[in-house]
Design a binder for these strands. Sequence first.
RNA 1: GGCGCGGUACCCAAGUGGUAAGGGAGAGGUCUGCAAAACCUUUAUGCGCCGGUUCGAUUCCGGCCCGCGCCUCCA
Length: 491
Amino acid sequence: MIRLFNTLSGQIEVLAPADASSFRMYACGPTVYDYGHIGNFRTFCHVDVLRRALLLEGLKLRHVMNITDVDDKIIRNAAQAGVPISEYTKKFERAFFEDLDALTVAHPEVIARATENISTMVRLIQRLAAQGYAYRTEDGSWYFRISRFPEYGKLSKKDLSGMADGARVDVDEYEKDSARDFALWKAPKPGEHFWQTELGPGRPGWHIECSAMAMEYLGDTLDLHAGGEDLMFPHHENEIAQSECATHHTFARHWFHVRFLLVEGRKMSKSEGNFFTLRDLLLKGYKASAIRMLLISVPYRQQLNFTFEGLAGETAAVDRLRTFHQRMMSAPRATETNRELLAETEVCLRGFRAGLENDLNTAEARAAIFDLVRAGNIAADAGAVSEENAAVILETLREFDSVFAVLEDRDSAITKFALDWAEQEGRLDQAAPEVIAQQGLSDERIQALVEERTQAKRSRNFARADQIRNDLAGKGILIEDSKDGVRWRRK
RNA sequence: GGCGCGGUACCCAAGUGGUAAGGGAGAGGUCUGCAAAACCUUUAUGCGCCGGUUCGAUUCCGGCCCGCGCCUCCA
């Protein structure tokens, strides 16, 4: 049973679906106006961890994520690029999913695009209007009347009663009744793309899309709603207001918010020069698996300080796990089962599960797995790993990886993908030279050099052997000799 | 100003009223032609500061200092 912090109640609660047949969750997705940055992906990775942990609990999932494919930035950027917004958003939506795949983030069961659900939003707004929660302004926009919803602020714990209506109204807003009232439907400005609907011409406000689509695909009450911490207010607060006023039911039973990350101790921002997209890091030669590991290793409610030193550390940590995984698959088997190791494995598995169940404490969960790595290595060094031991350890690693998803080495292919993309986009100058050099070497070429080195060693020509090894090392290829033969891998 | 989170070794970080997990980095060792990988040993009498409660506090309470986040569309 997973215990998880609920922003709404401010407490840690046991997470269970209202209806046992499926766990219904909604996670706010991206606005597809640019490439995603590592801050975005920290949130998506942690939602992915939640998703995977729920599956591990044996729950059936129905997970919906929206794609915001119309908003001010999109309209602006598409106009600048001189392309229709659909063409503009398609490009970044594709890039977004490519990035999710690189980070092994599983896709939700349902992807809901705002532009494909306009009529659902219109109906929701009409429902609100019919009950007096929405009003139309002179320019043809529709707003939500916050004063009609006394519980407004219950998620973000804001007391808005002290804020007098109309105390400070932006001059460019059309006569809203209150400064806090938010747009449900925006009348088009000249030249803007719009939908002709029963509400009049225009496009949806941002908040309404999540309410409308969440309820369309999941019903009036969700088991859980997720997003970055910044969305808590006003976005999620507004979603609650719209949804609960329309249906008079609880909108989401549990609210899950992922904290922002810092980069080198500072808030990530373009002006600070510490703003990184996933693709930036891949071109610098950092492995996708290490990035995922770093993003999820600090528990979701904790601020993560993303540093390059930390990233290098996680690269080593992932390597260590993979090396251990390989070793457990191939290590010579002892005839007798190591009871002590069996017991240690059990303790580690329990520790792993306990960590996850404890408010998704990924740091605690992964510590248990590293305990297993040590125990397994010690036993393997002593030749005391039986078939049964190996099987149980491998099963534990499988369970670990069903959540962490870092053991399979797809890094080289992902880096190659990023390089191909950079080439197409004319951004190859952003790639680190070593990365380009390494990718220029095919597996076959490396294999040939490794064999040449082995021959050189056999004839005790260590100078030549070391030269090959050093050359390859300079291109990020590591050679490891072992009793079972020579292994090589891309650093 | 309002609301919230945090300050644990060189870095990241878990954690508990009874004496500090884990990862990385560093140092020494085993192994190796040399490396790498792996393993062993080692690195906080100490958990921001000051008081208090307690047999005992890093863990509870109070005060202070510092950092961070949100407070109109940024995950």
